[in-house]
Nucleic acid binder design. Structure first.
Length: 665
RNA sequence: GCCGGGUUAGCUCAGUGGUAGAGCAACCGCCUUGUAAGCGGUAGGUCGUGGGUUCAAUCCCCACACCCGGCUCCA
């Protein structure tokens, strides 16, 4: 058999079969299909397994080419760029130890341990960037080899983190953070770029560093080794990498767009709220324009709860330690609580949750099964001690208000209740413009939980059934539940595709037990109710922050702090403008005007920057004919609209919210 | 809490070991204006707080507070 005569057949994803010379690689296959494909190819999938382009194809294999503009291809680019980063750092900082460097969404990172516990500063990034570009220019090959764990341990004898990864794989202790480096088993693979630089890695990688180059180093950060805060703090460098200059530029532009929507920035620009330093970290004050939006959100929430079978309650902000002993918070949640206040008749804590107080309301008198499900609702403000470094605008603060409800029901009612809750949650979220949801089912962490296996099983099943009845996709997060029971968390996607966790539905059989809650059943015996915790906004503050970013500050008319601004062309038209303002305000709309000291164009610009939904311009013609010029946000100007017609359109647009809040809007 | 970077006028940001500047906003005039910036003027800051070094600190050092990016944690 001569090599030149021998051929192999491989089949492609579309089912077609190609014949290639024996010994052909993925790259050869790509070339045989087309030069553009060959240029874009970064790796192959051979019989379902990702491999390097240079791997010889076995006959009969099913082969797909991974191109750089696919998710999988970018993953390869990013992972390979991470190796280049590691090589650059090891060259520039002799004695540095490298640990892990995976591809992540939109980029990659690599964690290092610098000699003498040195740290990176932002200035180091440009130096590292230049070195990386040298490496890329040199066109170093990525050469794969496989070896036994024992040999690998010798190869990485000076690299303790690599050795730890190898050992964990060998002993079967590997977890998710290891799999980007190595596959399970006793054989590990390494990729060598130069005499001196070799990295433990499962691959695949691009053929040479020349295939890279459209990258940017983004930021430096500390990161715990293996995410363990008791472990060493490593130095992490984040980067992003793309298949082309234009894709990289687009990504940078997207980041800039997201930054423009940053709720902290918009809150300042739009005068919605602030975090005065004297107030302390993670505590906000609401200015009038932010407060009116919040009030409308809360009014809407109250209305939906009132018509949705809930009863309103109010509870205080602090409670005696005894209450939190009973609830178990002082045992399971103490780290998340504000420190205690000593008073003459005991120790008091600000409440981190509303549930214990709602339990007290339930327990105040005997309950009958006829009362269940009993749904208690409160916009309850809670205080949680969040560690200083975790605070983040409105999305992570120390004092916040939950649209909180605790539903007491029988075990039999639990599944139906959860099912209808899901409808309720989604219908409320849709009112705020969210359409794209993701569901997560969190299950028990045996080390951090109370209750029997049986009841956990029952509750988890009820949640799962509710999700399945809705026919929605959901992911399971093992061990992510609260200490008292399993839960469903709902993420929403906002207008620019980012995910936010908002709503939560949680089962609890712990608190009814701890508080000794009971109801008298139809059988005249005492039974223990199940308790469901649920919040739709989650936290009003966080929801507001998400909403602000979702709308980019351009709140829909029913929520906008100022819905209409009437502008007189000259001061001679101000009386007419004011009469329109008065008519709309009398109907409950939020409308204002500004005097004609500035030029019209400038006043319109100001209104646009404030993101006011409608600007009405009135001049001579309008005074004469009871009309207005309508300049809607994001739309075209229409002249000579009858004012009555505009007012009617405004009524229709805001109708659903109007009868809820008592305000137009 | 940990690692890194910050904090200068209401906002966005320059700047210097010898007690500070721009643009926008504000205020006052002039202009009376038809759909995103008319012109001129005035006022506004103990340079985050407290210590230290120095003849002299907004600038250098230390501590603290707060903010930003991550890690950990989380509504």
């Amino acid at each position: 058999m001569t090599a030149s005569a021998a051929t192999i057949d491989v089949s492609l994803p579309d089912g077609s079969v190609r014949t290639l010379p024996q010994g052909s690689t993925g790259l050869d296959l790509a070339k045989s299909i087309g030069s553009r494909l060959a240029k874009a190819a970064v790796a192959t999938v051979i019989n379902g397994a990702e491999s390097d382009l240079g791997i010889q194809l076995p006959s009969g294999a099913v082969v797909a080419i991974i191109t750089s503009d696919s998710d999988a291809g970018r993953h390869v680019l990013r992972h390979s760029t991470a190796h280049v980063l590691a090589q650059a750092v090891l060259q520039l900082y002799p004695g540095a130890k490298f640990s892990i460097g995976p591809a992540i969404e939109d980029g990659f990172y690599y964690d290092f341990d610098l000699p003498g516990a040195a740290t990176f500063s932002d200035d180091d990034l440009s130096k590292i960037d230049s070195k990386m570009r040298e490496i890329i220019k040199a066109g170093q090959p990525f050469v794969r080899s496989e070896m036994s764990s024992a040999d690998a341990l010798k190869l990485f004898v000076d690299q303790p983190y690599k050795c730890e990864i190898i050992e964990r794989v060998t002993t079967g202790a590997a977890d998710g953070t290891d799999v980007s480096e190595v596959q399970a088993g006793d054989v590990v693979s390494v990729y060598r770029n130069t005499e001196t630089f070799v990295d433990l890695c499962r691959g695949p990688h691009v053929a040479t560093t020349s295939a890279l180059g459209h990258f940017a180093l983004m930021k430096v950060a500390g990161a715990y080794w293996r995410g363990n805060e008791k472990g060493p703090m490593l130095q992490r460098i984040y980067g992003t990498a793309w298949e082309s200059k234009s894709a990289l530029d687009e990504h940078i532009t997207r980041l800039a767009e997201a930054e423009k929507r940053d709720h902290r920035k918009l809150a300042v620009e739009m005068d919605l709220l602030s975090f005065p330093q004297e107030l302390g970290g993670g505590l906000a004050v609401w200015h009038p324009k932010g407060a009116i939006i919040r009030k409308l959100m809360e009014d809407y929430s109250r209305h939906r709860h009132q018509t949705g079978g809930y009863q309103f309650v109010f509870t205080p902000h602090i409670a005696n330690a005894e209450l939190f002993e009973t609830s178990g918070h002082l045992h399971f949640y103490k780290d998340g609580m504000y420190p205690p206040m000593e008073m003459d008749n005991g120790t008091y804590y600000p409440k981190p949750m509303n549930c214990p107080m709602h339990c007290l309301i339930y327990r105040d008198r005997q309950r009958s099964y006829r009362e269940l499900p009993l749904r208690l609702f409160e916009l309850g403000t809670v205080y949680r001690y969040e560690r200083a470094g975790t605070l983040h605008g409105l999305l992570r603060i120390r004092g916040f208000t939950q649209d909180d409800s605790h539903i007491f029901c029988t075990e039999d009612q639990m599944a139906d209740e959860i099912t209808s809750l899901l409808d309720f949650v989604l219908s409320v979220l849709r009112q705020f413009g969210f359409e794209d949801f993701e569901f997560k089912l969190s299950t028990r962490d045996p080390d951090k939980s109370v209750g029997t296996d049986e009841i956990w099983g029952k509750a988890t099943t009820a949640l799962r059934e509710a999700l399945e009845r809705h026919g929605v996709q959901y992911s399971v997060k093992e061990g992510d539940a609260a200490f008292y029971g399993p839960k469903i968390d709902i993420d929403v996607r906002d207008a620019i595709g980012r995910k936010w966790q908002l709503s939560t539905i949680q089962c609890d059989f712990n608190l009814p037990e701890r508080f000794g809650l009971e109801y008298i059943g139809a059988d005249n015996a005492r039974h223990r109710p199940i308790m469901l915790h649920r919040a739709l906004f989650g936290s009003v503050e966080r929801f507001f922050g998400v909403l602000l970013e979702h709308y980019g500050g351009a709140f829909p008319t029913w929520l906008a702090p100022v819905q209409v601004r009437v502008l007189a062309v000259t001061s001679g038209h101000e009386a007419y403008a004011q009469s329109l303002v008065d008519q709309l305000v009398a109907e409950g709309f939020r409308v204002d005007t500004s005097t004609a000291d500035e030029q019209l164009g400038k006043r319109i610009r100001s209104a646009k920057l404030e993101r006011i939904p409608y600007v009405l311009v009135v001049g001579d013609d309008d005074v004469a004919h009871q009309t207005v010029g309508v300049n809607p946000r994001g739309g075209e100007v229409v002249r000579d609209v009858k004012f009555s017609a505009f007012a009617e359109q405004l009524r229709v647009e805001t109708q659903s919210a109007a009868n809820i809040s008592g305000l137009r809007g």
